[in-house]
Design a protein around this nucleic acid. Structure first.
Lengths: 234, 234
DNA sequence: TGTATTTTTCTTGTCGACAAGAAGTCGGCA
DNA sequence: TGCCGACTTCTTGTCGACAAGAAAAATACA
């Protein structure tokens, strides 16, 4: 592979963040699929850095749960925990609701503009049928809402959940049809309007429905797919 | 200080965890007060380890937000963000409610026993007027409940919030009187009963009230204290 | 005597090398 | 031929040293 991204002019502290962000993206985009072994030496060569900064980046990723380190042995990209999906959906739904509620209650000047930017990007991705773009712009849209809600604890957990969701969706994105995405655009617009009107109750109800919609869709992808697999296995 | 805890027989991967846990505890117990500078060399001497494993522990702590690293300059114990307290209380209350609800819905064999153990410990701390013990056993009690709820995302966030709360409470623990703690014991028992009966609605209501109680108490400590400070400052 | 600039010093960030532990390999034995 | 044990090799964990950046100290100048 032609992976030599040797940025020889890194100012002192930048190397670690670069490695961290690059790997993080590759994990979330499944460019590094779950279970992939992560070799420090290899990364060291690839980024033209010593193993020490690589290691620091890996520790950060491990703290986030994106990679799993078997002590004294290998370190691999964390598997997607399908048994834990109900927990995941529960937390995701709660965060959808809570962040949207708070956005309606707390948004200040400029927040709406930021949200609209993301919504435009999402709409563009939908019209151009860019499924991968839809997944990531949808994430950015909801994070923008969460940030308008001004609660860093929720923003952090929500970000983690949405990124975990991106990994799952990537596994199934082929199954997207173009009816649902259109619907999402409309739902997003309703959401924005409720936030602008500071209608907390409505925002909550819409967010709740939106979350159910998304969770339901993911669920249907997964069950459909696992049936296929089950057929093959038997 | 007589801080030479040179455990010369550490098996290979253990050093990092030891440093991590030790520092984590000292930060939460305010043995290392907010703003304290953290010197890698010093820790290196203290734990009889090279700077490399020390650094890894620090990266983990930084990922958790317990320490703040000023790039190329010092790294210090994170300050307690008093401006962010409303966000903190909001998230804390939500986690109290959600984890208790889930415990009532999902608890399995053995969970109740684990909760009762922690409740006993809390009760003991209250009767012996051990305020510091009360703070930490209360945390353990609620984490036991959260674990019975079987949602790792909530458990993780809740743990972080409760530990952050421990830091705050340590600042004000002198103000504890022994009326409220008694009341907490009773509230805990009601909570347990609701969980055993799988009464989700009641569990939610009780948790909500319990959270309000605690938040209210912390708030009163802080405002009282900050008035004192304000007097001094003017 | 006060301020600006250079120098020194100290801490962090990075490096290459070494050591320990585990998996895979090879050989011996039944 | 099949299984058990020593050996080799490969990856991770740790170390001591060096380099860069920033604060503090010292010096020069007005």
């Amino acid at each position: 592979m032609d992976e030599t991204e040797k940025l020889q002019t890194h100012r002192r502290g930048s190397g670690v963040s670069t490695v961290y962000e690059t790997l993080r993206n590759e994990i979330i985009e499944l460019k590094l699929p779950p279970g992939s072994p992560i070799d420090e030496q290899q990364l060291s060569d690839r980024f033209a850095l010593s193993r020490t900064p690589i290691r620091e980046a890996l520790v950060r990723l491990a703290a986030e749960g994106l990679i799993t380190t078997l002590t004294n042995r290998a370190t691999i990209v964390s598997n997607i925990d399908f048994l834990g999906l109900p927990e995941f959906f529960d937390a995701l739904t709660l965060m959808y609701r809570v962040t949207t509620r708070l956005a309606a209650a707390n948004h200040a000047e400029g927040d709406i503009a930021a949200i609209l930017v993301q919504q435009k990007a999402f709409e563009a991705a939908v019209t151009s049928r860019d499924v991968l773009g839809m997944i990531s712009t949808n994430r950015d849209f909801h994070i923008a809402i969460a940030q308008a809600g001004r609660n860093r604890y929720y923003v952090e957990l929500f970000t983690r959940l949405l990124d975990e969701g991106r990994r799952i969706l990537r596994l199934y994105y082929s199954s997207f049809n173009d009816v649902l995405p259109r619907q999402y655009v409309g739902e997003h617009e309703e959401l924005i309007q409720a936030i602008i009107n500071r209608d907390v109750t409505l925002a909550d109800r819409l967010a709740s429905a939106h979350a159910d919609q998304i969770v339901g869709q993911i669920r249907s992808y997964i069950t459909a797919d696992s049936r296929q697999n089950a057929k093959l296995a038997l």
